[in-house]
Measured scan of single mutants.
Amino acid sequence: MSGNGNAAATAEENSPKMRVIRVGTRKSQLARIQTDSVVATLKASYPGLQFEIIAMSTTGDKILDTALSKIGEKSLFTKELEHALEKNEVDLVVHSLKDLPTVLPPGFTIGAICKRENPHDAVVFHPKFVGKTLETLPEKSVVGTSSLRRAAQLQRKFPHLEFRSIRGNLNTRLRKLDEQQEFSAIILATAGLQRMGWHNRVGQILHPEECMYAVGQGALGVEVRAKDQDILDLVGVLHDPETLLRCIAERAFLRHLEGGCSVPVAVHTAMKDGQLYLTGGVWSLDGSDSIQETMQATIHVPAQHEDGPEDDPQLVGITARNIPRGPQLAAQNLGISLANLLLSKGAKNILDVARQLNDAH
């Protein structure tokens, strides 16, 4: 009898209710805020589980004197976190989706994509230029951005401005803007500013005609071990179906173009009346040469937790077992079709030249 009692006690200790789920994140304040929001949602869904947040620095956090596009290494903000995932030191990792490459290392998958916040870019102005827009900034004003995508589009749109690289986390960039006289304004992701509670610093939100956004911008991705079915089931509740389908289309477009950090590629997606609209573009580094096109596809946005595919093969690095396969494939095909259209119009040449120029500098 006593033996059975011990077995029952052991089973209770090993039951999922007692389990601590370890969540990996970057150390920056924004990353911690984003991770806290994901953990809060998981806690609400699984009140019996405990969650421990483990923060670590990544290569991208450490190399702050070089433009991201020049470092010449993929997975700048993800490699150390993936290493911890691989060694079973954490069970899942919360990322900004735009930091996750469209091809993940073997053994990993994006197990959830959370509801997207505003994906557009924002302009934050130096205190002396508050009330201005990019259009009304004085001639030769210097605007800071760490992104080739932003610089290429904005140089084309605002030729009277000069664009220079600015690195560091959000706090560091804002301090550089406010305390030094080098920059009249800087460009940042609206979602990051909003998550930090800095709505009052948003001086201008850039519309798609001015600057399309990065693939996955404004959404959070939760990376897990691809074979860890328990954790895949656990994080599945975080999937937002519309965000998922938009981001599958965007990531398929980028992957098929073979774009990345070192080339200016941008997108804009919208879901309306059962249609998914995808606009994508590529630019030369100075913005003088560009190709942009829009395509659409009829896609039914499923309700969360309709029964999805059981075999769960990944699409552009994403596993969404609780979302039907048909809409996911339709979104992926839309991204591939748009990429093929741009490639047929000469996108590869623009991107190759951009890559060579970026590598040469």
Rank of each mutant, 00 (worst) to 15 (best):
Q229E: 13
E86W: 04
A303E: 10
T319A: 07
T35Y: 00
A360P: 02
R173T: 01
P241D: 07
V235T: 02
F253V: 06
R116P: 04
G346L: 09
T25C: 06
Y46C: 09
L315S: 15
G168F: 03
G287E: 01
A347T: 15
V282H: 05
H305G: 13
N333Y: 05
V103R: 11
R321P: 07
E242K: 11
H95Y: 04
V353M: 14
A84G: 08
Q275T: 01
P106C: 13
S165N: 10
A191V: 00
G281V: 09
G346D: 04
H160N: 13
I113L: 14
T172S: 09
G346F: 06
R149Q: 03
V142H: 10
I318R: 07
G107M: 14
L341K: 12
A40K: 13
G48D: 13
L30M: 07
D178I: 02
W283L: 05
Q292D: 10
P302A: 12
K227R: 07
R22W: 14
P324M: 03
M295T: 06
D352A: 13
L357C: 00
H268I: 04
C211G: 08
A270E: 14
G203C: 13
I187H: 01
T66L: 09
H268K: 08
N340H: 02
A214E: 05
Y213R: 01
G308D: 13
E162N: 06
N358D: 00
V301D: 12
G287D: 06
E117N: 06
V237W: 03
P208C: 03
A44M: 04
I33D: 11
R195T: 02
K157A: 13
A84F: 11
Q194K: 13
R255A: 06
A40R: 07
S262N: 15
L137H: 05
L238H: 00
D121E: 06
I187M: 08
D286E: 13
I54R: 09
F129M: 15
T66Q: 06
E306C: 04
L161E: 01
A339P: 00
V224T: 15
N333T: 01
Q194L: 10
S28Q: 00
E135Q: 14
V301T: 02
G192L: 01
R173M: 02
E210H: 01
R355P: 15
E135T: 10
R255P: 04
G287R: 07
N340Q: 15
G203A: 14
Y277G: 04
N322H: 09
K62Y: 12
I336C: 00
T279C: 02
S337F: 00
L134K: 02
R149K: 03
V267P: 03
L68M: 13
P264V: 00
Y277Q: 01
S284D: 04
D99H: 07
D359L: 13
G131Q: 14
L30G: 00
E310F: 01
P127W: 14
T269K: 06
E250C: 02
G287P: 02
E135F: 11
P101L: 07
V94T: 06
D233R: 08
A347D: 01
I205G: 13
K115T: 12
T133Y: 08
T133D: 13
L334C: 13
L188A: 11
T243S: 12
K140H: 08
Y213L: 03
A55F: 15
R355S: 15
T59W: 04
S57T: 08
D36L: 09
P106F: 13
A297P: 00
P324L: 12
K98G: 01
A347R: 15
E162F: 14
